[in-house]
């Protein structure tokens, strides 16, 4: 299910992010911009924006490393104000996934997917669902070099007239 895939990918990313967040709050504060998201108030301190920190999530989408935008300014405000942290880009079977978490008073209050795209920047294909296929599309496969045959179970008697028997006979 599409939702299930996205959620599990997001959770995996969030887990990595959370571990990093717990280990590196100080780093986040150093790198964080001065945009507080607690109540939409602008602290006006954006002049001190760190190298990679940004409150604009879209600008983070291509960044391979973790970034954070948190309640900068005073360290005391960090605990009360909500802060957002961008997770690392996590490669998955379906493409790269990056999430952003919002943390307030030590608890995650929101998880947002920043990036759910594949390498071609198309929207991510979570689904591996089977879709109609024309026989002519698969008939291109050459049978000449086939080394083994798969089919519904053949009985010992049916084997004698099977394609597999012909292949085996050629290799005996």
């Amino acid at each position: 299910m599409k939702a299930r895939g996205a959620v599990s990918a997001a959770l995996a990313s969030a887990g990595i992010l959370l571990a990093g967040w717990q280990a590196g709050v100080q780093i986040a504060e150093i790198r964080g911009s001065a945009a507080s998201t607690s109540a939409g108030t602008d602290t006006g301190g954006t002049g001190a924006t760190g190298a990679s920190g940004s409150s604009d999530s879209s600008s983070q989408a291509g960044a391979p490393a973790s970034g954070a935008s948190g309640a900068a300014g005073s360290a005391g405000a960090a605990a009360a104000a909500a802060a957002t942290y961008d997770g690392a880009m996590v490669p998955t079977r379906f493409g790269s996934v990056q999430v952003q978490i919002t943390v307030k008073a030590g608890a995650i209050t929101d998880v947002t997917a920043l990036q759910l795209t594949d390498d071609d920047r198309k929207s991510i294909q979570i689904s591996n669902r089977a879709a109609p296929l024309l026989r002519s599309e698969v008939l291109a496969a050459q049978s000449a070099d086939v080394k083994s045959i798969s089919g519904a179970t053949v009985t010992s008697n049916a084997y004698l007239t099977s394609l597999q028997a012909a292949i085996d006979a050629a290799n005996l």
């Binding site: 086939v146 045959i149 798969s150 089919g151 519904a152 053949v154 084997y159 394609l163 597999q164």
Partner: peptide
């Protein structure tokens, strides 16, 4: 390549050391 009544499991390659796959055919029912 091991085939038991139409179920196939392979290892390695028919040309050892290469990346050549074991091409398997699927019966037309």
């Amino acid at each position: 390549c091991l085939n038991a009544g139409g179920d196939v499991l392979v290892s390695g390659s028919p040309v050892p050391g290469s990346y050549e796959p074991w091409d398997a055919g699927i019966i037309d029912p």
